[in-house]
């Protein structure tokens, strides 16, 4: 984790009001020294080079939804089903991740509106155990979709994940079909599903719900892929192409509909939700 992400993650745990005005960070892309406040006021995008910084769930929800949204509770799941331990016990890793974290796990849902259009918004947070998909993420995804079906509105998800949560072994892998089952139900209910791919989205998340959107949006520069770059490099033993697995590269290869700057995200989602209005279904 870079120094910038570390600062960002610790910042997302405090409210904006508490951020000292004199704290500065160095842009991860262009190296420019920026005041944290200026950076945050600019949606955590570098004003100099447009680098899109990684943001937590709380900040992302606040950026996207109209005021007055409500956060849905994180569903309870069996914790540490495998009694997994590597150098640390999994419950200890969870406890550390939850310390000063406002929500229960890496995926948080909110129900609200964007420019008056109703939706359920799910946001994955790379700051919580790398956004990794375990049972809690799968359960939250299903709960978000069930809520959207009840509310008769679309589900929008902002993805961010290094992949599956290894500490849950096969049960994390089973979230791939599980989330896909939920998506089938959303589609059967005539409701739209929009994916916003943010930096980074890789592994089992990409190979399931992150690639099944009716419309696929990516943030500029976001790393998006199935296999990790190191694994690919070990396989092919040659230099990876420029911009490989970046949002623009995926757009060029037909894998996403559009690459959208963070400042235009609200408007884009509002327009999409207006075009893809719920249709009446037999069920």
């Amino acid at each position: 984790m870079s120094w910038l992400t570390r600062v960002r993650n610790s910042l997302s745990r405090t409210s904006k009001r508490d951020t000292p005005d004199n704290l500065w960070i160095k842009c991860r892309s262009c190296g420019e020294m920026l005041f944290v406040k200026d950076f945050e006021d600019n949606l955590s995008v570098c004003p100099k080079c447009d680098y899109h910084g990684r943001i937590g769930a709380q900040e992302r929800i606040g950026q996207l939804l109209d005021p007055g949204f409500s956060i849905l509770p994180t569903p309870k799941v069996k914790e540490d089903p495998l009694r997994f331990r590597d150098s640390k016990k999994y419950p200890d890793r969870l406890k550390a991740a939850r310390a000063n974290y406002p929500y229960g796990d890496a995926l948080t849902n909110a129900v609200g509106q964007i420019e008056g259009k109703k939706l359920v918004l799910g946001v994955q947070d790379f700051g919580f155990m790398g956004g990794s998909m375990g049972m809690a993420v799968g359960a939250a995804f299903v709960a978000g979709i069930e809520r959207a079906i009840r509310e008769k509105c679309g589900y929008v998800i902002c993805t961010a994940a290094g992949g599956a949560r290894m500490q849950e072994g096969i049960l994390s892998l089973m979230q791939m079909p599980k989330t896909t089952v939920a998506l089938r139900r959303l589609k059967a209910a005539g409701l739209p599903y929009i994916v916003v791919l943010t930096d980074p989205t890789t592994g089992g998340v990409t190979a399931s719900y992150a690639m099944l959107g009716d419309v696929q949006i990516a943030e500029p520069g976001a790393l998006i892929g199935f296999a990790g770059q190191r694994v690919i490099q070990d396989t092919i033993r040659e230099k990876l192409p420029d911009g490989f697995q970046r949002a623009e590269y995926l757009h060029e290869h037909g894998m996403v509909d559009m690459v959208v700057h963070r400042r235009d995200m609200r408007e884009t989602l509002a327009r999409l939700l207006d075009y893809l209005r719920p249709v009446a279904t037999a069920a």
Binding site: M176, T180, A210, M211, L212, G225, F226, V231, T235, I236
Partner: peptide, 20 residues
């Protein structure tokens, strides 16, 4: 397969669609 051409042609999407 973890390779450049597999990523280029949408490995993740292909797997997601097969599961679906």
């Amino acid at each position: 397969f973890p390779g450049v051409e597999a990523e280029e042609r949408g490995q993740a999407e292909a797997i997601a669609r097969a599961t679906e």
